[in-house]
Design a protein around this nucleic acid. Structure first.
Lengths: 208, 208
DNA sequence: GTTTGTGAAACGATTCACAGCT
DNA sequence: AGCTGTGAATCGTTTCACAAAC
């Protein structure tokens, strides 16, 4: 399959949100212009993004809201549910576990892990924290799709390697450390320090 | 000042981390190649990124570790401390408040807000949660640099507008909603749902 | 000999503009 | 007439490659 840019995929996710909004508003069709306005992009961009996957609209009319939504869910792989494991039950890890939005959108946390005996056994939204020593066994038993890494930076690479060995094919990394994973494993990083420093740079530039 | 790409700024932040590592390792100089290897990029990229701001290296030798670190901190605006307000004291908001990494890197949370009476008055790492009704007054009194939005999506735009009116020039938005802010206000978005959906897309594509 | 700094080339993403369908 | 789908043009970023400095 043709390589799709990350920026395109992110916009598709946004279009799907807007389609759901248009659907609850009772709109049957929507133009690329209308989607663009809501998403802060251009109509040409919307059409180009969609054209990578097929032609879903009717000239003169626009796109059928409900049907395009279904197609986007298929394209994004959101017609199924995903099984997540969260490694690290600190502040951020436990906040994620209790965030309802994930479950709502099809992402179920099936297990949590920590290496701190104090935290092992705690329940977050019905999921018990297990000892990280059990990680490999649980990966084998539960066959999760996605691993979420929320451990200190110096432990992140080791956790990533255990997840990969356990068959996980997608990793969301919150640790402030660059991870090496095989080509067939997808990796997304969320680095709060980097975001704040980008804001710091912008503030410093403004001030001249 | 010449427009610097966001991707460049993010790499500069990473280089700074690596320089700090090299410094504790006792390295006096470092080559663009060495920085590139640690950061998963190329030596040409490192040199190009740095060249936007000056020429910091010596041909045949590399870059002086300590000095380049100082220069990068200046460029990124990290030679000073920043004052943050966090709006929303839910799971993610309170996790952020308790995350020591921010303070360590120069970002001090000076106030937190919530509209839930249950949460008002709680202390997170020494910072009390105040009623969001007090937001405008506190902005005036505290003159914070950065606002962090951690409220539900439908309240995010209103909070952003109050922050902007209160003089905040940089916003970090965790709410899953696109925000409109004036051109002179910097905005970074962290959208966990979008990251998970990008992983979902990658998994779906892999499977064909 | 080594490594920087930087124009030029290559690549990738966005925007333009219009032919073609409804 | 209205709006999509898309090749061509533009714009921005990364990579190449080499002269200059040490």
């Amino acid at each position: 399959m043709r390589k799709i840019a990350d920026s395109t995929v992110r916009r598709l996710s946004l279009y799907l949100r807007y389609l759901e909004e248009f659907e609850t508003e009772g709109q049957a069709t929507v133009s690329s212009e209308a989607l663009a306005t809501r998403g802060g992009t251009t109509s040409a961009q919307v059409r180009k993004d969609l054209s990578f996957f097929g032609s879903f609209g009717k000239r003169g009319l626009g796109y059928p809201v409900a049907e395009l939504g279904t197609r986007l869910r298929d394209i994004l792989g959101l017609s199924r549910r995903y099984r997540l494991v969260v490694v690290g039950a600190g502040k951020i890890g436990s906040a994620l576990a209790q965030y309802r939005g994930f479950r709502q959108r099809g992402f179920d946390i099936v297990a949590m892990f920590d290496n701190d005996g104090e935290k092992v056994g705690k329940l977050y939204d019905g999921v018990a924290v297990r000892d990280v020593a059990d990680l490999d066994a649980v990966l084998e038993a539960e066959q999760p799709d996605i691993g979420v890494i929320v451990v200190p930076g110096d432990q992140a690479q080791a956790v990533a390697e255990r997840l990969v060995r356990g068959g996980v094919k997608a990793i969301l990394n919150f640790a402030p450390a660059p991870l090496q994973v095989p080509d067939d494993v997808s990796l997304k990083n969320v680095n709060l320090a980097l975001e704040l420093e980008a804001l710091s740079f912008a503030l410093a530039s403004q001030r001249h």
